[in-house]
Write a protein that binds this DNA or RNA. Sequence first.
DNA 1: ACCTGAACACCGTTCAAGT
DNA 2: ACCTGAACACCGTTCAAGT
Lengths: 219, 219
Amino acid sequence: MNRTRLRRKDVIQSAIAYIDEYGVQSLTMRRLGTALDVEAMALYRHVSSREELVSAAVRELIDGLFDDELMQTQPKSWEAYFQHVANAMRNLALSHPRMFPLLISQPPEAPWLRPPLRSVRWVDYFLASLLGYGFSETHAVKAYKAFTSFLLGDLLLQVTAMGIDIAPVAGDGDEPEEDPAEYATVKRLEGKLAEDPSQREFSDGLDDLIERIRTVSEL
Amino acid sequence: MNRTRLRRKDVIQSAIAYIDEYGVQSLTMRRLGTALDVEAMALYRHVSSREELVSAAVRELIDGLFDDELMQTQPKSWEAYFQHVANAMRNLALSHPRMFPLLISQPPEAPWLRPPLRSVRWVDYFLASLLGYGFSETHAVKAYKAFTSFLLGDLLLQVTAMGIDIAPVAGDGDEPEEDPAEYATVKRLEGKLAEDPSQREFSDGLDDLIERIRTVSEL
DNA sequence: ACCTGAACACCGTTCAAGT
DNA sequence: ACCTGAACACCGTTCAAGT
């Protein structure tokens, strides 16, 4: 019944799995301990605090993304490269919707590191690639900023639209409920608002972004 | 020394002030109680749980934005209206950097409500305004989506760049530290990366967005 | 070297009791 | 009607002790 000696990796992987299923709020040293068939206190052998565990989980995800999806291929055009990275990040967000917001809430290693591309290694590789595609330094930095802003906005929106939140759902208390039926315009447009063209919206937004970056580069 | 009877409003305002100063993680019923010269348990007379308190604080901020900044003036052009709303939201984000991420992490009232514009009343008013400026229904919804995505991405980036996070700073544990000096490209571009043209970047991004929306509308 | 048990200081929340 | 005190079940974390 007892697996081989507990390793740090196991603890971190378990934490990710736990958060994916129940959310960070529910992650408890004691609960993760019992999930691993161990007393909570044993975890401190591998992790210095709950906070460090969570931030290690975040790092794990980002490093995984780097190793699996990007080192492998180097597309011919920078446009294809953007598509590549964007879709890899999107897949990460969609397969770990409860982890994704943590990429933002964790403080970055450097102030100019912009989530969700939040490791120095990552950004270094990204910028170096752009330079390799012939971007000027200024243009590469601009593209990096525009790209992160796009990813963050769109993916976070998508993830929260999945009805997932950092904290579990809060009851409405005894506040006056807002009644959507009262709001004429919203009611009228509800059909269009609720349309969920998430993949399409993302692709269109991305195409748009690429177009903007191209335009700037040609000035 | 004892103020007039505790009101729900006081509790919520205090919670906002407390979060602004110390972050949500530090908000504790007991601590907020002593900040209000009252036992923690007294708060439950006005608020049904800690969660409900936090979500009331978020709602308070959004409602305040609505009342103060937007009902007042109705600019002549939709472009000016966008600027209006965007800057109002930006001011909110910058004056409550520790609250702002909560606008995202709290579940929205309806699935198609996109943070940070996250109240039905708000969105109704926003969409109605666009229709008033002559937008078609489809175009108004598209503009709403593009606008929220922009606001969310840019403001969240700005707020996290302030070094603020939902959770207090996590130590790095005994993981291998990433050494920025090792990363050549990042090192080379560090100057450009660290430039903080936040107001300008935001304005440019907004101009860009407006331009995109205009273009679509003319097709 | 790794895990456990008991303990400490702190939570959110309930409930009977005070005024 | 509003607040308090004591209590309960749960946390993160420390530390001495077991193997």
